[in-house]
Every structure is written in structure tokens, then in C-alpha cells.
Design a protein around this nucleic acid. Structure first.
Length: 261
DNA sequence: CTCCATGTTTAGAA
DNA sequence: CTTCTAAACATGGA
């Protein structure tokens, strides 16, 4: 789940359930996910502080503590999420980190434990240090076209490279290319500036629609690929069977009829 | 048992 | 230096 739309939903959930109350207790059940902090140091950084602001860049989520002198950093890997803590109930299964208030709190849940829990003094510095490109929803058309036109290689791989654009992953890259009617292995340099500009608009429209749909494929608008992105799935546009092909080491699902050069 | 999965990093080959 | 490929990481589900 955790691509840009999913992380945006987690951000909003954290806004709703995780801000403005003093942290009483943090537990770290998966210390191996901590990057640059120990369970003790993280506990000390949060204890009796309040989280007051959230930001998202690509697939990374940041939450600042009061004073603005430090930010919790979360990355969700392949399976992570943010879930509320329900008072008087056990934390969710696979909770790697819990941040509890007197009443409620939030949990970072990751069944497959491929994510990261960290701390930074400045999200912008963190983004730079991790070589992340501009956020996919924030980048403007000209910057997108400029960056894309300098690239040789498969279009899908460029979209998924977090150093070029941050936030697009395997699933939404497929949706974006389906909406753009471009095959996943299409050469990026084959797009002229007009086509690249169109792709920019489609990317932002798809990501916005996914957020609107609460990152639930079943709630996406009619005519989207994702609900049919599986073996035997039928293209919502032409009714033909979808196909898969390898691109950048991942499975790309597409419609061979609607997405051809 | 095998294979696959929404991600990232690293090593090595062209 | 850029691009592509494979493997590794941890774990659950089909």
C-alpha cells in the first residue's frame, strides 16, 4: 500500500489521532527499524512532548514535536501503516512503534518490517541527504518536463525512481501509464515536451484521485486499471485481458491494446 | 515446499 | 557517469 496516496492518508490519520497531546509512553517492538536512534533515545525525545505538525515528502512522513526542533521520520516499506491506538485495547498486531497519550495514541504497524523509523532536525535536510527528488504532487510542469527530457531509459523506471520524482511506486506507476496510454517499457526520451507535460498532468490527477479515494483501489473513479491489475483482469477501457511484463525488476501490469506505441 | 508482494540499497555488468 | 539486472532484506499469503 504505501505509495504517495497511502502515506498521505497515514499523514491525515496522524493529524487526527496523534497531535497536540503529551506523549506518555513510547514502545519500540522492532528496534532494527530504528535508524540513528535507540528505543531509549527516541523515548526521551518524545516523552512529555506533543507532536504538533505533519509533513509528507514522497513516501516519507514527518511529525514535529513542540518547539519544532526535531521531527519523527517514518517510512513504510512494503507493508507499513499508521493506525490509531484504542484506549483499553491491545495495540494492533505487528505494531513496531507505539506512541501513547493518556487517552489513545498512534501505532506504526509493519507486518513485513521493511520500513524505517528515524529522527531528523529538518525534513528538507533529510530529503536532500536521502537524494529524494521533488514530491510528485508538488513538482510543477516545467520542472517535470525538464527532468524527464534529460533521461534515457524506460518511462516506468523513471517514474518510480525516488531520486527523480518522490512518491510514485510500482502500483501507481502502472495506473499513471494506463491513463496516459503509454506502455511501461516505453523509452522516456521518445516523449516530446508536449507528451511529457501531459504525463505530468495525468500523474497529478491520478495521485489526487487516489487520495480522494482514500487510497482504496475499489473507490477509484470508473475506468481505472488498479481494480483489474491481476492475472485474468480485464481492461476497463477495451475489455481485453491485461498483461504483465517485467520493468526495473518489478511486475508491470498494463493493457497491450490500449497502451502501445 | 514454492512463488509473489505496494520498497530501498547495493554490487556488478554493459 | 548512466542504465539495467539481480540479490538481499523480513514476513505473510496463495
Amino acid at each position: 500500500m504505501p505509495e504517495l496516496p497511502d502515506v498521505e492518508i497515514f499523514r491525515r490519520r496522524l493529524d487526527r489521532h496523534g497531535l497536540d497531546r503529551p506523549v506518555r509512553r513510547t514502545t519500540v517492538a522492532a528496534p532494527d527499524l530504528l535508524d540513528g536512534a535507540s528505543p531509549q533515545s527516541l523515548g526521551r525525545l518524545l516523552k512529555n512532548h506533543r507532536l504538533v505538525e505533519t509533513r509528507r515528502h514522497g513516501k516519507y512522513l514527518f511529525a514535529s514535536r513542540d518547539g519544532g526542533d526535531g521531527w519523527l521520520v517514518l517510512h513504510f516499506g512494503m507493508s507499513g501503516s499508521v493506525q490509531p491506538l484504542v484506549p483499553d485495547e491491545e495495540p494492533p498486531e505487528h505494531a513496531c512503534l507505539t506512541i501513547a497519550f493518556d487517552d489513545g495514541g498512534i501505532a506504526y504497524v509493519a507486518p513485513r518490517r521493511l520500513g524505517m523509523i528515524g529522527w531528523t532536525e529538518c525534513p528538507a535536510a533529510f530529503v536532500e541527504a536521502h537524494h529524494l527528488g521533488p514530491d510528485a504532487l508538488a513538482i510543477d510542469r516545467d520542472a517535470f518536463v525538464e527532468a524527464l527530457s534529460a533521461h534515457h531509459g524506460m518511462i516506468k523506471c523513471w517514474l518510480m525512481d525516488q531520486g527523480h520524482i518522490a512518491g510514485v511506486g510500482n502500483v501507481y506507476a502502472d495506473e499513471i501509464l494506463f491513463q496516459a496510454e503509454l506502455p511501461p517499457r516505453c523509452e522516456a526520451a521518445a516523449l516530446d515536451r508536449e507528451a511529457a507535460g501531459r504525463l505530468h498532468g495525468i500523474m497529478q490527477r491520478v495521485l489526487s484521485a487516489a487520495i480522494e479515494a482514500r487510497a482504496d483501489p475499489e473507490r477509484l473513479p470508473e475506468g481505472y486499471l488498479l481494480p483489474h491489475r491481476e492475472q485474468g483482469g480485464l481492461c476497463p477501457r477495451c475489455g481485453g485481458e491485461v498483461a504483465s511484463v517485467d520493468a526495473c525488476g518489478r511486475t508491470a501490469w498494463y493493457c497491450p491494446t490500449c497502451q502501445s506505441d
